[in-house]
Design a protein around this nucleic acid. Structure first.
Lengths: 227, 227
DNA sequence: CGTGCCTTTGAAAGAGCTCAATCCTGGTGG
DNA sequence: CCACCAGGATTGAGCTCTTTCAAAGGCACG
C-alpha cells in the first residue's frame, strides 16, 4: 500500500515536499512540470491498467487506492492525505485505481519530465527510494493486519493509525464505512458492529459516523496489538 | 512484501545483479564490502527490531521474511529466491525477521559503506528505487489476496506465482505447509484440504508434498482470478 | 417534507478454524 | 538390512467468527 493512514487530515500541503531541493533553480524546474487539478468525491485520478503517463502529488483532501477482482470484490491498498506522491509505478501502466474520497486538490506531472529530473537532481532518486521504503514497510504492516488480525484488532489498529492529527483524542474519518471495510478486508456490517462494540465498552465515542473520539487509549492499544 | 514468490528455484546467482555497474572499478568497490555466508534451514539472518547494520543479497536457497504479533501469530511477508536484496529498510532497525527456509548462501554488506556507494554511483539509487517499486507492487497484490480472496483462490494464486522455473508444469515447493499457511493468512489444515481438493479435481498432481504438477492450468487460473 | 444513500441492527448460514487422530516419510540405531 | 521414531502432512468432526440476507434508522439534499 502507499500509505499508512497517517496524515489524512484535511490540512493543506505546500506541495513538492519530496523534492523540494535547497537549490532554487531546481524547484522552479519541478514547478514548471506540474499542473494543478481539483476533483470531487468519487472522481478518478486514473484506473488500474491505464497508461502511466503522469505522476501526482496530493495537496489537500483524501485519495483512495484500490485493486479489484474480476467479480467486483475490492481491496483498498491505502488512503493518501495531503503531500503524498502517487502513480509512481516505474512500469508502463498503473497497478491500481486512484479516486478522490473527499474534494481533492493535486498537482500532475508528466512522467517523462520527471524521469529526466531524477538524473539531473542529485539525491532525488535517493529521497524517492526512502519514501518507497516507507511505503513498503506500511504495506508489510497491512499484510500482517489482513492476514492475521481479527476484526476487532483490525478496527482498533485502523483507529490508532488514523489518529495522527490534532493531538487531542479526536479522529476525523473522511471515508465511508464501505471504504474502511474494503481497506481492512471486512464487510460494512462487521465494521459497524465492531465500532458499536467499542462504543458500548466505552473505549471510543461516536458522536457522528465520521467523528470518533478515543476514550480509553490503553485498552484500544491492547486490542490493536492482539491483547 | 519483498517478493512475489517467483524465482524461488534452487538456482545459483552470481550475485550483485542489482548494482553490477558497467564500471569495473565500481564493481570491485562493491565486492570488497561484502562477506559470504552460509545458513542451515531455520537459521536467522536477523530479527525484527535488530539494529539494521547490514544489507544482504541471496545467492542460493530460499529465505522467508515474517512479522509476529505479541501472541505468536505469524504473517510471512514474502519468500526470496536467489539474487534478491533484503534488509533494505532505511531506518535503524529491521521491520521483519528473515530466516533460511532451505540451505542458503548469501552476501552481507555493511550498510554504511552501502550508503556511501549510493552517492558515488550514479543510477544506483534509481535502480534500487525501481526494485523497491516492484516489491511494492507485489505487496499490493498480496494485500488483495489476503483481504479479498477465498482459501481456494489463495492457494491457486500461490501455485501460479510459484511456478516460474522449469517451463514444464512442475512446481518445487521448498517451504513447509505451515509457511504456506502463514504466507496466505490460512491454517495448515486449510492449505492441506484445498491442495487435496485440487488434486481430487485433477487440477494438480501431488506426487510428494514438495512437488506439485499442474494438470489443468486453465481451471487453476480461473480459480486464482476468482472464477 | 419526500427521496436516496449511508449507517446500524438482527437473524441465519457458511467458510475457515480448532482440536484430535492417523498417515507417511526420511533418518536412526540395532 | 530392517524395525523404530520424530516431524510433517493429511483427514475428520464440531465450533466460531464473519459473512450474508434483510429490515429499520438517520441525515442531507432537493
Amino acid at each position: 500500500m502507499l500509505a499508512e493512514p497517517n496524515h489524512i487530515a484535511e490540512t493543506e500541503s505546500d506541495g513538492l515536499a519530496l523534492w523540494c531541493s535547497p537549490d532554487r533553480r531546481t524547484q522552479s524546474r519541478v514547478a514548471t512540470l506540474g499542473a494543478s487539478q481539483r476533483l470531487r468525491p468519487g472522481q478518478q485520478l486514473f484506473a488500474e491498467g491505464d497508461r502511466a503517463d503522469d505522476i501526482f502529488e496530493t495537496v489537500s483532501g483524501t485519495v483512495r487506492l484500490y485493486k479489484l477482482l474480476p467479480d467486483g470484490r475490492r481491496q483498498i491498498i491505502g488512503f493518501l492525505g495531503a503531500g503524498r506522491l502517487l502513480g509512481f509505478a516505474h512500469h508502463d501502466t498503473y497497478a491500481y485505481t486512484a479516486e478522490a474520497v473527499t474534494v481533492v486538490t493535486l498537482h500532475r506531472y508528466a512522467r517523462h519530465g520527471f524521469d529526466r529530473l531524477m538524473d539531473q537532481i542529485p539525491g532525488l532518486a535517493r529521497r524517492l527510494l526512502s519514501a518507497a521504503t516507507d511505503e513498503l514497510r506500511a504495506a508489510q504492516n497491512q499484510m500482517l493486519l489482513l492476514g492475521r488480525k481479527t476484526a476487532a484488532e483490525k478496527i482498533a489498529s485502523f483507529l490508532l493509525a488514523m489518529e495522527a492529527d490534532g493531538g487531542n483524542d479526536e479522529i476525523l474519518v473522511p471515508m465511508a464505512r464501505g471504504d474502511i471495510a474494503d481497506y481492512l478486508g471486512l464487510t460494512i456490517e462487521t465494521v459497524c458492529r465492531n465500532l458499536a462494540k467499542l462504543k458500548q465498552d466505552e473505549i471510543i465515542g461516536l458522536p457522528t459516523p465520521n467523528r470518533i473520539t478515543i476514550l480509553d487509549r490503553e485498552r484500544l492499544e491492547d486490542l490493536a496489538a492482539g491483547g
